[in-house]
Write a protein that binds this DNA or RNA. Structure first.
Length: 876
DNA sequence: CGAACCTTTGAGTTA
DNA sequence: CAAAGGTTCG
């Protein structure tokens, strides 16, 4: 057997693009051009077409390339037609990219690849063609989280469950989790079903499912779960897909959850004989339920447990641990079970598994060989992305994880710049320092598109946005709220959904009083009662109620108009194009007008979004087609042509790369996230560490880490300590730099485990507002820790008490800026007048009784009379 | 009914 | 600090 892990001394061909026109020549040439640029491991991964293959592809090792080349290879070898290849990704972006690259590689020869898409879009597609088997119609609606929660709220109310104690969101999370694990209501372990709502959790799940059927709707989880159910209950349908898909490719396999795993598993078996029991489809599976569950375990490590055969036990001994930890492991040679898995190729990286919270089972990748006997495992360890120091830092960091298959990334690139670690006093200074570094990079000719800031949590983004706006630096936020999750888009869609399917109560309810037309809670409640009593859709109930005098004349008139409008729109649907119809609806309903009248800052943007929505409808044949795809396909990442710094979370950065990567917020509690640690313990810590690894490996040439000593959490400042991940970096590859804001530590200091401990030695003469507030906090003592954010007043020292030289080397240091700001507010006379009513974050409401420059004396309603600096209160 | 005012609570990542 | 929920008043 070849040993794919030894790096041969031969030079590695770089990853040059492969040009088109391949398919035809491929058959003739001994080495098809698309294979020429591949290194031996990549090539093996592409050419091993038969049987299960697991490609362990570290960051930057050419994973997408392998996938696309493999498809090209399958096609050019004539092993399958485009419609016979199932290729799944997690994101639309990844799917698009693969299609794009494939198009380039094959020179448009293969238009289509109808089964290349996300798990959800393919699952949705399959579900639509067999909707009746899931008690749905093929035009079912895909609910977003918002609809889901509103529906659950109604169910909770019907059950008289206290929503305070048992929030609908929590139930939504539970149901989601069950669906991720492939569990239908009857399969939920009893122990888990009773934890919610005084034992009613399971019952709520099943009534939720019932309601979905009535509403002709499915949630995201259903797109896969219903597939699985259909496959299980209708072997003929399963067989149809099994024989259609000759090859299966899976991207990011480490992110699959149990449902996705089962789905793949079912599809990847060779077509079974009609009537074969499920146990022959899933080897090793026993029992009646598809997913054997740990009845008592709330968090079972291995939700799908397939009994290990004795052969495999022996093999485990070879590698010395339960998880194969070394590449030298013997591929399983045992006889294939009754239904041998066919040509499935999964590509993934256990070190990049960062979606455990979404139900991903790293275990799926760790036990691939187990699940697909005879699997060939290929490792890609040559990194073509990052320079030496960055790669070494990332590898050293991830080596602290215990649960991993173990890969060693190598590069032949130069060492490059060391990874830098910079401490800042607070998050504002962190943003300032990064802003300056970016300006410096820009001056040195760096393209802004090659710069990214990757944060752990999205709330961190705001400070960077603020900073970039003042600097006039263009930036773009990647990820963030999806286009179709925006309120105005959902409202517009709700109108269209109501037109399209009158039984869509959730949609109708959403817009019944948007814009305001005098149909408040009371009226809606009434309609609900009416609908429930007669078991008819809300819209029909409305129609009936208008004929009675149960509503007040005003509401009745409004409702009648609304119903008339919908009737009119539905009629127009026959004669106008769907885009025109959308415009008419938005217009006549008064929805556009509502935003036009709105004077708030984002109203214009919302109107733009609505226009964008209408424009995007043009790509679809009709309203039906549009609505079917909107929730699955609409993710916008447009406008990538303009030069801009990218700002995003670490999660959404997966799969991307940049020349320069800034990684702020490496502090305990934030990163690793305290919540993850609390909830997931060691596994959570390892996932956070993988996230750090993902962040570092996004960088090609420069990786710059930051931590701040003070950060605002929930609006109050608190002191933080540097992340343990910083301590886990190899000293040799890391350089500790002075904060641009100045600091008294670091620099030449030793590099030991506690090198970040002396946070107190940070410049004690800081003058940022954050520092002042923190000082004020400290002066007040630590026991009353909260509510101190705005507490600082008369001990307000001079902002210029002890300026430090290292601040002001020729560029405007942060201090000067802050100095100006502070000086300004002390210099001007107060904008407040006597008796003004004011609000203070800590002391609450009060009124001004005395003014002395910028210091106010305020009589607070609750806290009594206090002296406060004017900037800490707002007039109301 | 709805706006205005006030209180409370909560910020983790997403197909 | 912001959004969401609750209360009160017009």
């Amino acid at each position: 057997m070849t040993e794919p892990n030894r790096l041969t001394p031969r030079s590695v061909p770089d990853h040059q693009p492969v040009s088109g026109g391949i398919a035809a020549r491929a058959r003739a040439a001994s080495t098809p051009p698309y294979l020429a640029g591949l290194n031996p491991e990549q090539r093996e991964a592409v050419e091993t077409l038969d049987g299960p293959v697991l490609v362990l592809a570290g960051a930057g090792t050419g994973k997408t390339r392998v996938l696309t080349c493999r498809i090209a290879h399958i096609l050019s070898q004539g092993r399958a037609r485009p419609g016979e290849i199932l290729s799944v990704t997690f994101t639309n972006k990844a799917a698009r990219e693969m299609k794009l690259r494939l198009g380039q590689m094959l020179g448009q020869a293969v238009e289509g690849m109808p089964w290349l898409g996300t798990f959800h879009s393919i699952g949705g597609r399959i579900l639509r063609s067999h909707a009746e088997l899931a008690q749905l119609k093929s035009n079912f609606t895909v609910l977003d989280v918002d609809d889901q929660v509103r529906l659950l709220k109604q169910l909770l109310q019907a059950e008289n469950i206290d929503e305070k104690r048992w929030p609908a969101r929590m139930l939504a999370g539970l149901i989601d989790g069950w669906k991720n694990r492939g569990l239908t209501p009857s399969q939920v372990p009893a122990g888990e079903a009773i934890v919610f709502g005084n034992g009613k959790g399971g019952k709520l799940y099943s009534s939720y499912q019932e309601r979905l059927k009535i509403l002709n709707a499915a949630d995201f989880g259903d797109l896969l779960l219903e597939n699985i159910r259909i496959f299980r209950e209708h072997p003929d349908v399963l067989r149809q897909y099994q024989s259609r898909f000759k090859f299966i490719l899976v991207d990011e396999y480490q992110d699959t959850n149990v449902a996705q795993y089962l789905w793949l598993r079912l599809l990847s078996q060779a077509p079974s004989k009609p009537g074969a029991p499920l146990s022959s489809i899933i080897p090793g599976y026993t029992g009646s339920a598809v997913v054997p569950t740990h009845a008592e375990g709330v968090n079972p490590d291995v939700p799908l447990h397939i009994k290990e055969s004795e052969d495999e036990d022996k093999q485990s001994q070879d590698s010395g641990s339960a998880l194969p930890a070394h590449p030298g492991m013997t591929p399983s040679t045992q006889a294939a079970p009754s239904a041998p898995p066919k040509n499935i190729c999964c590509v993934g990286d256990d070190d990049q598994s960062i979606y455990g919270w979404r139900g991903a089972e790293v275990d799926n990748i760790l036990r691939f060989e187990h699940d697909f006997p005879g699997a060939k495992v290929i490792r890609l360890e040559r990194n073509y992305r990052s320079t030496g120091h960055i790669l070494a830092a990332a590898s050293h960091l991830i080596a602290h994880n215990e649960s991993r298959l173990g890969k060693t990334l190598r590069t032949e690139d130069v060492d490059g710049e060391k990874v830098t670690v910079t401490g800042a006093w607070d998050s504002e200074e962190e943003a300032r320092a990064i802003g300056e570094e970016i300006e410096e990079l820009q001056r040195s000719g760096e393209n802004l598109n090659e710069i990214a800031i990757l944060v752990r949590a999205s709330f961190q983004m705001r400070e960077f946005e603020d900073r970039f706006v003042t600097l006039g630096l263009s930036y773009r936020v990647i990820g963030g709220p999806r286009f179709y999750e925006r309120a105005e888009i959902r409202d517009a869609l709700a109108y269209l959904r109501t037109i399209n399917s009158p039984a869509d109560d959730l949609a109708f309810e959403r817009i019944i009083n948007v814009p305001k037309r005098g149909l408040g809670d009371a009226s809606v409640q009434m309609l609900h009662d009416h609908a429930r009593k007669r078991r008819i859709p809300l819209f029909e109930a409305a129609r009936a109620v208008v004929e009675t005098d149960e509503l007040k004349p005003k509401a009745r008139g409004a409702l009648r108009d609304l119903i008339a409008s919908f009737d009119r729109w539905r009629a127009q649907r026959e004669v106008t194009s769907h885009t025109e119809l959308a415009e008419i609806v938005l217009d006549e309903s008064g929805y556009t007008e509502m935003w036009q009248k709105d004077r708030s800052a984002d109203a214009a943007g919302r109107l733009d979004n609505l226009k964008e929505l209408v424009r995007s409808m043009e790509e679809f044949e009709n309203l039906q087609g549009f609505l079917e795809h909107i929730s699955l396909v609409m993710d916008r990442d447009g406008g990538a042509d303009e030069q801009a710094v990218s700002l995003m979370t670490l999660h959404s950065a997966k799969g991307l790369e940049f020349g320069n990567v800034f990684l702020p917020g490496w502090e305990e509690g934030l990163f690793p996230s305290q919540r993850t640690l609390d909830e997931q313990g060691r596994a959570g810590l390892e996932e956070e560490r993988r996230l750090a690894h993902v962040g570092l490996t996004r960088a090609r040439r420069r990786a710059k880490l930051y931590f701040a000593t003070n950060r605002r959490i929930h609006g109050t400042w608190s002191t933080t300590i540097p992340s343990r991940f910083l301590d886990e970096l190899p000293a040799h590859n890391v350089e500790i730099t002075e904060s641009k804001g100045g600091s008294g530590w670091g620099g030449a200091g030793g590099y030991g485990p506690s090198r970040f401990d002396n946070v107190e030695s940070f410049g004690s003469s800081y003058t940022t507002p954050g520092w002042q507030r923190a000082q004020a906090n400290r002066a007040r003592g630590q026991e009353n820790r909260q509510g101190q954010a705005r507490g600082g007043f008369d001990e307000n020292q001079s902002p210029f008490s002890s300026p430090r030289d290292d601040f002001s080397r020729n560029k405007r240091g942060p201090m000067v800026i802050e100095g100006e700001l502070v000086a300004k507010s002390t210099g001007t006379t107060s904008e407040f007048s006597l008796d003004d009513r004011v609000f203070h974050q800590k002391f609450g409401y009060g009124h001004v009784v005395k003014i002395d420059g910028n210091k106010l004396t305020i009589a607070f309603e609750k806290a009594g009379e206090k002296k406060v600096v004017d900037s800490f209160v707002e007039r109301i």
